[in-house]
């Protein structure tokens, strides 16, 4: 899993089967110092509570499809938790 900052939201009514009710958030992947790393991606919010500006962590590839209640939903990034506290050695 890696860190990311939630920076936006995507609403799509026309979408693939199995994606009903899935909340899509735009996230900016971060390095361990919480600096932007690479381009933004759209992730499914598997905790249903992440809001814009929050520091979260996410999983990618097949595990993202396993993060949602309905198994094997076509997503490749999924937020699996919101960071309350993070300590990283200098």
């Amino acid at each position: 899993m890696q860190l990311a900052r939630v920076i936006g939201r995507v609403v799509a009514t026309e979408k693939a089967e199995g994606l009903e009710g899935v909340r899509f958030l735009v996230i900016q992947p971060l390095d361990k110092r919480q600096q932007p790393m690479g381009g933004t991606v759209v992730a499914a919010d598997a905790v249903h509570m992440a809001g814009t500006g929050e520091l979260v962590y996410y999983v990618s590839s097949r595990e993202a499809a396993e993060a949602l209640p309905v198994r094997f939903v076509p997503v490749d990034h999924a937020i699996t938790g919101i960071v309350d506290d993070i300590q990283v050695a200098p």
Partner: peptide, 13 residues
């Protein structure tokens, strides 16, 4: 190199 604490996460974690 660090620890991450969260109360809101998928049940598995």
């Amino acid at each position: 190199v660090g620890t991450v604490v969260s109360t809101i996460n998928i049940p598995l974690l």
